[in-house]
Design a protein around this nucleic acid. Structure first.
Lengths: 202, 202, 202, 202
DNA sequence: TATGAATGAGACTTCATTCAT
DNA sequence: CATGAATGAAGTCTCATTCAT
């Protein structure tokens, strides 16, 4: 009679531990000992559930992407039109409502830097950006098309790229220069940016 | 007769060493030994010219900011109008003409992550962003004002923030997900973004 | 009705697991996890059947000795004379017919090194050598005695020691410098060595 | 003005440290900390002078081979004839005069076991055996040739192999089953073995 | 100024062993 | 009997920093 595994739960706890520590101190300073302590576990156990510290980071990236995806689905459902869905996607990325979000933003900032060095992290980071870019492109196309115009493929892609860059930049600024932009400023800013570029594109 | 001091030159070499290594491997992995080797020096000498490794990083940030500033001055001089000067500033940030630029972009990406942990780095990183933000604001105001309109203070600030976020985001994407956006895409994209927001603001 | 115990079978599987892993990676690198995996079991189970990893090693030594003994009995039975029985004992040690033998040779090599550190292993290793030495002595005496001569006690002991050393050395060379001596070279070599020393001793 | 390097001396001290500890506890148990302590140094310094623990082992093998070679040269010089030179080479290997020799024997025993696992160690161990084998072959040929006989190539090679195996085996037995053979027994035993095989070969 | 040896702390990781289930 | 989660110690190695020369 096999004992029920608690691996999934433990892995999740460990990922949260990394999220917490990494948001505060970066990846290298997030020692396995600190990660474990933040999760209320021992260091050895981290390596029982993960092959290496790097694998914890990869799992964390997966988690962060999943959270944004889930938020996007929820918000998108209650949007009235294409422009509304574009805004919903932007908001899903830039929602900074609570502590958890702030930690996630800081962590995402670190992930980008870590992608420079670790091939596997770069792959998953890049995949996340590609995913966002594709969805943004699609929504931008629909938003521009409103009113019967049939946009080409270039304009939506430019809008998507601009929105994605602004989102990533807003993350960075919020995490690394806190208070430089007023709280709650990011989402409306990027929405206006998207609107302006869509408008001009018509 | 005392030897002439070569401290300034040595400091500059060391900063370049950090730039090179950090662009490739991040800050923590940029050991003093590697930095020294990249500069053709020995590890001990780094600590003769800098109090700590962190001080080298601070010096590097200063250097990166100075390079962008110098480039902005040059380009701005040959601009015809307010919009041209805004474009010049954007281009100064996003010029990615050669290897040195690519290394600088990657390094700047790492600086942002390091700002999360080191108060002194955060201060200088933040100061750099504030500096850019102020100049962008000013130029945006002038660009919007063209035609006799007198914009308020909010709109230019929003344009500046959007441009700054897009620039920082473009850095990140170029460094951490190379090839995701086509080469040479960033500068025109941000220029169009700025134009669109200025236009709508009129 | 209690389940019939499978302890004996399990212990044997575990010993085989250690044999396999140790031949490849040495004793320290043969972690309990690897031993268990090689036997298709789990790590916890190893400690249910053995008090410690060291006890598995002791059991392995017993196993290796038993295998050689059994082989010696078989071969000795079909030998015509004293010299033939001496050759049979040599062959029993140096038979390297299949993979199992090669693993055993490598493992025995590691056992010798481990005997340096672990008193209990040294005791059982030494007992095995004493056992071989005694039998070799006895057979050497009989071989020398052929023709009516009555050898003293020194000569047979020297022959036995030389044969034993050559056997142990052949193990070592076969395991740690594979291919240095041609395959199948060891047994005839030691037989000739034994013959020559017996001859001279007459 | 370059400071004089003490690296050579330090490396030698570290190698001696490994020799001491390894003779007592084997290779895996010879932690870098213990090696350093045995040499009166700190653990970090070991890695300053050696790339890895394995490299210390390789250096130790080189050292052990060099010691035997030097001893062989000395003894060989005062030998009267071919047989004498063969005896000198045997004695050079099996001299067990002092503590240093005993440690060396135990260490060599461990080296053989380690050669099973580490390719680089195997290479250097094998090279050492090949070197000995070639010299033994040559001397055996000369010893057999005494009296005008011209031996083939097979017989000397067999003598050399037997002698080498007996030497390696004697090492093993001396190290791992101390006292099993009387002290000072090994060298005469192998000399007689060599003589007997040469005699028969004529 | 410059070198390179030296230190000591701390990082990641592995592992024998225990134990609740 | 068997599993697999959990622990705690220990191991190798890296590194910023110091200092005699």
């Amino acid at each position: 009679m096999p004992r029920p595994s608690n691996t999934a739960a433990r892995r999740s706890e460990i990922v949260q531990g990394l999220l917490t520590v990494m948001a505060r101190e970066g990846y290298d300073a997030a020692s396995v000992l600190k990660i474990a302590a933040a999760a209320g576990l021992t260091a050895g156990l981290v390596h029982y559930h993960f092959e290496s510290k790097q694998q914890v980071l990869v799992a964390l990236v997966d988690h962060l992407v999943a959270v944004v995806d889930a938020r996007a689905s929820t918000r998108s459902a209650s949007a009235a039109d294409a422009r509304g869905r574009l805004h919903a996607l932007i908001d899903a990325h830039l929602a900074l409502g609570d502590d958890a979000d702030l930690r996630a933003v800081a962590a995402w900032s670190v992930v980008g830097a870590e992608a420079l060095r670790q091939a596997e992290v770069q792959a998953v980071y890049r995949a996340a950006l590609e995913h966002s870019l594709a969805r943004l492109s699609e929504l931008a196309r629909a938003a521009i098309a409103v009113g019967g115009v049939r946009p080409g493929t270039r304009r939506p892609r430019l809008v998507a790229a601009a929105v994605l860059a602004a989102i990533e930049g807003a993350y960075r600024i919020a995490a690394s220069a806190p208070g430089l932009l007023p709280e709650g400023f990011a989402a409306p800013m990027v929405r206006q940016l998207a609107d302006a570029l869509c408008e001009v594109g018509k």
